[in-house]
């Protein structure tokens, strides 16, 4: 059959091409502080953070079928925990970011316990309610500035590096680390035993259970893991903004709707999808951000269009036609 001929003749060539593309992209990104201007660097930092958010949402929805529209809870918690640790705990920026990720993962355990009491589409809206509870709850905490939020003192940002240029370079490499780590994390998971179990769940949940996969525990673990990593990106995003408010921290549009669009347009259930989606999202934003509301309406329309035309998204469509894969997760038997 043609399919088999395809996969048999291509791997070597494809492996080379993957290494070339990925290596090239890494090199370009790693050297960005040396070629990019300030504005581009800021844009790249944001894009790398979004890449992490998108990879995490994709891991959750695309591989375990848990459709959450409440991931803003973890972006917000990550942001606020980071601010609290850095401001009141006197902890350095990088350790505070990491601690806030772990802290959020711990909070995600009772959160998930609640959310998992609902199924399917109701799980989705339930996660949203929980995110709202965190938003409204944080707004009640006067130490964190209540509803009007809190700023990161200048000396904390300064502690990263003295000069502005150096500071931005450090910031950039934090974003670079978060973005690339998110890709490697998902890739690693998919190649692990978890990945095999996830594929089994995706093919048939019932069948997976009968061969001894504890689907609930697996899904729960992935939920907690993605919460922690989402919080890491969230902490960084607000480090970049230097100010956090409940409305910004727990925004469903910024941290869930856009992330959803990125993943779905790029291709759900693939590692390449969120990458392509992020590139497209930021490219579109550069062109169309001035259109204001029309730009957002266009985003919504594109997402609907993808769902109606080809649910697999851009990468899914390409992969189905060419058999390409930048991140081979299938083990060669």
């Amino acid at each position: 059959m043609t399919m088999i001929a395809h996969t048999q003749s291509k791997p070597v060539l494809q492996f080379g091409a993957s290494v070339l593309i990925l290596g090239g992209a890494l090199l370009v990104l790693a050297s960005a502080p040396f070629w990019a201007g300030r504005a581009e660097l800021r844009l790249l930092m944001e894009a790398l953070s979004y890449l992490a958010l998108a990879q995490m949402w994709n891991l959750l929805a695309g591989y375990t079928g848990l459709v959450s529209v409440g991931q803003q809870a973890f972006v917000g918690l990550g942001g606020y925990l980071f601010f609290a640790l850095a401001i009141f705990g006197g902890i350095g920026v990088v350790p505070a970011l990491i601690l806030s990720a772990f802290g959020t993962a711990i909070i995600a355990i009772p959160t998930g316990w609640l959310a998992f009491r609902l199924n399917g589409a109701y799980f989705a809206i339930g996660t949203w309610v929980i995110a709202e509870v965190y938003r409204l709850g944080v707004a009640q905490v006067s130490a964190l500035g209540g509803g009007s939020g809190i700023s990161l003192p200048v000396d904390i940002a300064r502690s990263l590096a003295e000069g502005r240029a150096e500071r931005e370079m450090v910031m950039y490499y934090i974003a670079f680390a978060i973005g690339t780590a998110s890709v490697l994390l998902v890739w690693g998971i998919l190649k692990s035993r978890w990945g095999l179990a996830m594929t089994a769940i995706r093919d048939s949940e019932l069948a997976a259970e009968t061969i001894g996969v504890n689907t609930r525990r697996l899904k729960f673990s992935v939920y907690v893991l993605t919460a922690g990593f989402t919080a890491l990106a969230g902490g960084f995003l607000f480090l970049q903004k230097l100010r956090i408010t409940p409305d910004a921290a727990f925004s469903v549009n910024d941290w869930t709707a856009f992330v959803l669009f990125i993943v779905v347009i790029g291709g759900l259930g693939t590692i390449e999808g969120p990458i392509i989606g992020t590139i497209l999202f930021f490219a579109l934003r550069q062109v169309a951000a001035d259109w204001g509301t029309w730009y957002l309406m266009l985003m919504g329309a594109i997402a609907i269009g993808v769902m109606l035309m080809d649910k697999r998204g851009i990468w899914g469509w390409i992969a189905a036609r060419t058999g390409w894969s930048l991140f081979p997760t299938r083990r060669l038997l």
Binding site: A121, A124, T293, G300, A303, M307, L308
Partner: peptide, 24 residues
């Protein structure tokens, strides 16, 4: 056209509608 066992397409399509309506 998006009804079915997969819950994501309806969620996504109506999420898109939500964004379109709010901004409209």
């Amino acid at each position: 056209r998006v009804l079915g066992k997969d819950i994501l397409p309806p969620i996504l399509v109506t999420f898109g509608m939500s964004i379109i309506i709010q901004n409209g």
